[in-house]
Amino acid sequence: MSVELNHTIVRAHDKKASAEFLAGILGLPVGPPTGPFVPVELGNGVTLDYAESDEIVPQHYAFLVGEEEFDAAFTRIRDAGIEYYADPGHHERGEINHRWGGRGVYFDDVNGHNMELLTRTAQ
């Protein structure tokens, strides 16, 4: 068997609201609670397991999406009035990037995690 990422825990002040925020942007369902977690399963089978925590250390999560998924998610970001950036340091406000011939955008989730959507990766 090859090595694959199965799941990761995303710390959140409100696990349900946080899972619903990201799932809403990505157009994915929120799974039923499993133990202390609220999961959001991605298309490649990796699950983001949201867990409640008083202490949040912002992390970076990047999601490779298709062109249509990017368009839909980016529309949801703009419609919700979420600030977005072309860069991970959040200096290029209100812009997207075109790295590697694709498109990318960064935004913060409700806990301050730095989320990234990209349509292409460096080969």
Rank of each mutant, 00 (worst) to 15 (best):
M1A: 15
S2H: 10
S2K: 07
V3F: 06
V3W: 01
V3I: 11
H7T: 03
H7N: 13
I9G: 02
V10G: 04
R11A: 11
H13P: 02
K15Q: 12
K15N: 04
S18D: 12
A19E: 10
L22T: 07
I25P: 08
L26R: 02
L26W: 10
P29L: 03
V30F: 12
G31E: 14
P32F: 00
P33Q: 05
P39E: 02
P39G: 07
V40N: 12
L42F: 14
V46F: 09
L48F: 10
Y50M: 01
E52I: 03
S53V: 02
I56W: 03
V57A: 14
A62F: 05
F63P: 06
L64Q: 13
E67L: 00
E68P: 04
E69L: 03
F70P: 06
A72Q: 02
F74D: 08
T75D: 11
T75L: 13
R76G: 09
G81F: 11
G81N: 14
G81C: 13
E83G: 09
Y84N: 02
Y85S: 15
A86P: 05
A86T: 11
G89K: 12
E92D: 11
E92F: 02
R93H: 07
R93W: 04
R93Q: 11
R93K: 14
E95F: 06
I96C: 12
H98A: 06
G101Y: 00
G101V: 01
R103T: 01
V105S: 05
V105Q: 01
V105C: 13
Y106L: 01
Y106K: 03
F107K: 08
D108N: 13
D108K: 14
N111D: 15
N111E: 05
H113M: 09
N114F: 05
T119D: 04
T119N: 02
R120E: 13
R120T: 08
A122Y: 07
A122V: 11
Q123K: 12
